[in-house]
Structures are given as C-alpha cells and as structure tokens.
Amino acid sequence: MNKLNPTQIAWRAAQDIADGAYVNLGIGLPELVARFQPPGRQAIFHTENGILGFGEAPAAGQEDWDLINAGKKAVTLNPGTAFFHHADSFAMVRGGHLDVAILGAYEVAENGDLANWSTGPNGVPAVGGAMDLVHGAKRVAVITDHITKDGKAKLVKRCTLPLTGVQCVTRIYTSLALIDIVDAHFVLREKLSSISLDELQALTGAELHVVGAVADLIVPDV
C-alpha cells in the first residue's frame, strides 16, 4: 500500500501553518514540521522550557546545553527570540496564545479525545507538557501513521489507552489522509488518490464522513 512517510506527513502539516503563527511542535515526529515552512511564511516556534523563536540544531561541538528544546536537544536562536520562565511558558499554552500545537498520537477518537502519553500501567509513567498542550492552542493537530505497526486502527471510536485530553483534537494528518474532527465526527478532507474510500474506511476505527469534495492528498517526495 502506498503511504506517506513521516517526513511527508510533516510536510503536509506545515502547509497549514500561517505566516506569523505561534506554533508548538511535540517531541519526535512533529519536530519535522519546522523543516517545511512554505516560502514567504515565517512561524515562531515555542518550546515549553522557555523559548519563542528557536531555530535549527547547531553543528556538532557547537552546542550550548543551556539552549535546548523540550526534547532536551540543543537548538540555536533566530533573530527576535524571547526567553521566559516555565509559568509564563504555560500561560502561553493554556491561555490560548498559541495558534497551533502539533502532536503525536497513540490513538485519536472521533470525539477529539487524544491518547498520546501512556501505553498502560507498566513501566514508569511520564507526561511532560502533553496534557497542557492539548488545552489552549487555537488548533490542536495530530500527525500520525494511519494505523499501528501491527495494523490496528489509531483513529478510533473511543480511546482505549489513558487519555491526554478530552475533545481537544481538531485535525489529523495521517500517512493516508487528512481528517478534521467536526461535531464529534471524522470528516475526510483529503486522501491519497491510490486508496479508495472503502479501503480507507476499513483502516479507520470509526465512520469517515464525507462533506463535500474529498481532495487528493498530494505531497512531494521529501
């Protein structure tokens, strides 16, 4: 089956970020989104540990370990950076000041519930900023493979894993489709032309609604 690779999913998500948007990218796959800002647009990236306007990773050996992102990776600064403490950082998050948060997911439910912090009771639980980020950003988007590695649906009727937040996700970018959550329904906006609606539905754990035209999901080789 044709599907987008993670970098391509990130590319598609990046196309929806407006010029001047304040954006938080989750650790891991969502970080790739920063690479694909469309020409002429400039987003300002927020990291929970107190930076607005950080840039690329520095060259090896040039790291300043007081200058890291939420994933504890070294970053550089773009012109116009601001530093702030953690309470201000999460005021930006909860206070509705961020335009977009893009996060990973274990499961997303059709009502917008997100599970992305815990795979169950084993091991050491760790939540970080995930539960804060799903509240407050004007748009909370998820980027994810459409199905798990062993073929199970990640887009589901109700999450079975511990929740990160309730009714918080508004858009899902997957390896096969772009889906909005509207009134507790999955609404299909774009899909790869190589997959039929029936095939896509079979890989999705809740009903896909079609409202108007479904566009082809077209992404360059990146």
Binding site: H86, A87, F90
Partner: peptide, 11 residues
Amino acid sequence: LELVPQGTLAE
C-alpha cells in the same frame, strides 16, 4: 512518584 503535568507543576 507524584506525576504532575509540566504546566501544572510550574503553576
């Protein structure tokens, strides 16, 4: 362990 969301911990 008392696990606290990061923003809640800060606040």
